[in-house]
Write a protein that binds this DNA or RNA. Sequence first.
DNA 1: TGTTAGCACTCTATTGCACTGAGTGCTAAA
DNA 2: TTTAGCACTCAGTGCAATAGAGTGCTAACA
Lengths: 346, 346
Amino acid sequence: MDDRKQKVLLAIVQDFIATAEPVGSRTIAKKYRLGVSPATIRNEMADLEEMGYIEQPHTSAGRVPSVRGYRYYVDYLMKKRELTREEEELIRSQLAKKARDVGRVIKRTGNLLSQLTSYTSMVLTQQRRPSKFKHIQLVLMNPAQTMVIVVMDNGAVHHRLIETPESFISSDLETLSKVLNAKLQGLNMNTIRFTLLKELYFELGRHKHILDLSLEIIQEGLFLEEEDKIYLGGVFNMLTQPEFQNAEKIKTMLGILEQEELLCELLSDDSLDKGVTIKIGDEIKDHDIKDYSVVAAPYMLSGRKIGTVGVLGPTRMDYAKVISVVDFLTKNLSVALDRVLRGGGR
Amino acid sequence: MDDRKQKVLLAIVQDFIATAEPVGSRTIAKKYRLGVSPATIRNEMADLEEMGYIEQPHTSAGRVPSVRGYRYYVDYLMKKRELTREEEELIRSQLAKKARDVGRVIKRTGNLLSQLTSYTSMVLTQQRRPSKFKHIQLVLMNPAQTMVIVVMDNGAVHHRLIETPESFISSDLETLSKVLNAKLQGLNMNTIRFTLLKELYFELGRHKHILDLSLEIIQEGLFLEEEDKIYLGGVFNMLTQPEFQNAEKIKTMLGILEQEELLCELLSDDSLDKGVTIKIGDEIKDHDIKDYSVVAAPYMLSGRKIGTVGVLGPTRMDYAKVISVVDFLTKNLSVALDRVLRGGGR
DNA sequence: TGTTAGCACTCTATTGCACTGAGTGCTAAA
DNA sequence: TTTAGCACTCAGTGCAATAGAGTGCTAACA
């Protein structure tokens, strides 16, 4: 692909990203000053179309980038864009706000991302680390109920309120807690099951009911927490994009957004990479999603990946901007999370 | 309002609910067999319009119920609808599924509700009960980090990981936990602040850092937990309704749904009532929402209201059906929650 | 006095049609 | 190789005619 073709392709992609209208040869000649006439550009465009980089919605319309065209643009033509002072400032200040829990930070991140890009943001939180039992605590809440709290070594805390016979008193529970803690310390599920159960039941047989429930909660902690949660932000925001004049388009889009599993898969799939990943149109398997692109990047906590941030928008999205925002944001998010999860909360 | 007028109004509301098209006099005469001619019905309709129960989109269109018309229908004309076997069965089976946590049940409820009604469901969880301190537990996770867990008497559990000096050992933390538990038992924030702080700091001065953080977490537990969370379901679902052919309508609707505070307010506002509440169109203050109605009802846990379930749909919604579903669902939800929060989780 | 048939009238929605303008591809000249 | 010129295509727009749904009113009827 010669130099001029690249320039023409770049012009088409940029213009289409900016206006959402098919781009004609005249427009390019005028706006992008390639020093040649529209006719020449038409010839180049005919070539580019043959090569599969651009398409024509109908005979009398201008050209539109194809998925392949976007891909070429993203890989070779696109200039890196730096964030403006204001954008950096906004991100920093939002993430610096004191936040009480992770959920809050996640939500704020999503909104921020959507606000900066005008597309829909997705934040996935992953918990993939296998965990071990760390601590159990039984707290008598009232004569008939006990709170069972289980702490895993990866910092997860599970709790549930259970019914207990009125005969229980605080010190019973304390003893029980102590024994369980001593016996189960640092074990994972496999180890717990075979060696210790009999021993435990023998020793604490009297409290069978509570023991059952406790073990069940521990089990949950060990097995079931590998769950991804996804947060979406700025759906309404994205509707200001010109492609969404049409009710059908909106419906398709909402249809995609309601398939949480699909989105989760989309985001967790990048898991290998460290940096920003870009998926364009039908590079994604799902058919519905052929007119959309996703820009995603993982975020870390103490060097370990704990989730992914992504932006979903039309294939026509402003990749340069989105990429820079996602990149900057994920880096700063890691810092912010560290502060919330560790420090004094501010 | 005489008997025949009621019949005409009923016919108009029913037909409009079913078809979403303005209803003409001929249609009523034919489909609803009132035994009079279209001309007579036209006279009645003119009266009903004058009385404010129906409206005409334009001169050559049929009539459409006004908010007042819907209100009259809901209050006086509507026949109670029983759920079908299948519907009841579906609700029962979905709620009977074993669920691991409340969030899961809430989500499932929302989806169920939306599926049954074809409108958007909203589930609000409220935590309005003032709580007292019940228990604090410090767990050493690794040489440098400690997990602080605070249990409130209403069953809320708060936790956070904090940094601790390496010199700490498990028994330090145990002592600390014990003292804090003994001193702070059953207090609310006001009491804690004045009497005990000095005493505590004197006694445990050596551990000032950890004490500060612990108290902060307790404080959060006491003050900040009055937070409502709302879950929305089946937004996409609702788009199958004929009013959403138009992109603008969809945007307005999504605009409403993105205002979480507004929705929360809408649902928490019914807090007084025990049963199903119906708000139609501009009976709701917010202007955007004038074409929508909300049917809501609270759900309970051990006799105390802990949240609200609602359905948001066009004013033209099938009230009879929605009301019966919401009613049945909230009643069963209470039972299901009880099982999850208490029992063995299934 | 209430009901009904008939009719003129209103207004929306649809259809067909001509026209405009953007944009192309091709050809021939520079 | 580039460019000017030209015929051609096709979506979009505006306009007029038409169809159809529904009304309100009047006068006749029971």
